[in-house]
Amino acid sequence: MHRKFVREGEVSPGVGFTADLVYYEGGHGIFNAPRHRHNFDQIRFIVSGDPDFGHGLEAAGGQSAFFPAGAHYGPEVIEQAEVLLIQWSPDWVTRAQHDETYSEMQKIGEFRDGYYVTVDAEGAEHRADGRNAVWENFMGRELTYPTPRYPQPILMNPEGFDWRPLNEGVSIKSLGRFTEDDVYVSTYKWDARSVLDLSPERMQFIWVSEGEVSIGSDTYGPRTVIFSDFGESVLVEAAEGAKVVSFGMPVPARASVHI
């Protein structure tokens, strides 16, 4: 498994995220991970391949999946695939924080097959989920899982959705909206030259899947990721035939009003 770092930062104030393009090799063994869960939400967009996320959740190229915090998934079996992976949480550990903690933990135990393995004074082996163990060591407290909003990941198949007009020249397949944070996944296509407005109320970003799109005077082709940060408005222009997949990150919580 190889990761190509895409971006890291904050979805909105206090909510950290990271985005990676993950490549799973073919012909050199199959990636396996045990059934597990996390305390953060995830979206996975399947660029290519047929990853198996366990318990009948078998995805295919062009599909997306929402992985709710606290929900179990796996065992994973993945070979010859590419996946765009987006993960976020208010208690996010940055890449630099993770790597430093990981290195320190290797002095005491071993990361193996998705687990962090230690041996006590009596010679007994203890296993913990690898990523969660890093989180606990960095935060200095025990990880508690949230009650999952959904019992398992939700797989979205765009072939099962109909196109609907969004504006003059652009059509949409609204694949899903999730949780009180209004996280969304949609697909857009241009039927004529037109503009898609990524509005400022949240971070949004798109994966260009077909054709070319333009931001101002710059033009981008397939396999480009374009971010529109919270508080920023980005106008995406394209001609007929262009297609993108769009991911809307959590809308920031609004302050309570006391009467």
Rank of each mutant, 00 (worst) to 15 (best):
Y150Q: 15
V134F: 03
T18H: 08
V6S: 11
T147D: 05
E212N: 06
R164S: 09
D181M: 09
P13S: 10
A242Q: 01
E180N: 10
D218W: 01
T118A: 06
M203W: 10
E168D: 14
G56Y: 10
D91R: 12
A239V: 05
I154P: 03
G56H: 06
Y188S: 02
S246H: 07
I215H: 08
A253K: 15
I226M: 04
E104K: 13
R177C: 12
W92D: 04
A19F: 01
I226Q: 01
R44P: 02
L166H: 15
A255T: 05
G176Q: 12
R112W: 00
E136P: 06
Q42K: 14
A128Y: 09
G248R: 07
E210Y: 11
W190D: 07
A121I: 14
Y188T: 03
Y102R: 14
P13R: 10
G176F: 10
A124Y: 03
S171Q: 13
G216L: 07
F17M: 15
Y184S: 13
T18F: 01
W207N: 07
T94D: 02
R254G: 09
I46S: 02
K4F: 09
G49M: 05
G241D: 04
Y24H: 14
K4C: 11
Y115T: 00
G54H: 02
E212I: 01
V93A: 02
I215L: 14
V195A: 09
N157E: 04
Y145T: 05
A124Q: 11
G160H: 12
V134I: 14
H126R: 13
E136W: 08
S199K: 15
T187D: 08
P146A: 05
M203D: 03
E240C: 11
Y24N: 04
G9Y: 03
P153T: 07
K107T: 03
G248F: 01
F205P: 02
R127V: 00
S233W: 11
G74V: 03
R44S: 06
R193C: 07
V93R: 10
P222H: 11
R112K: 14
L143C: 02
D191G: 00
Y188I: 06
A60R: 15
A60N: 12
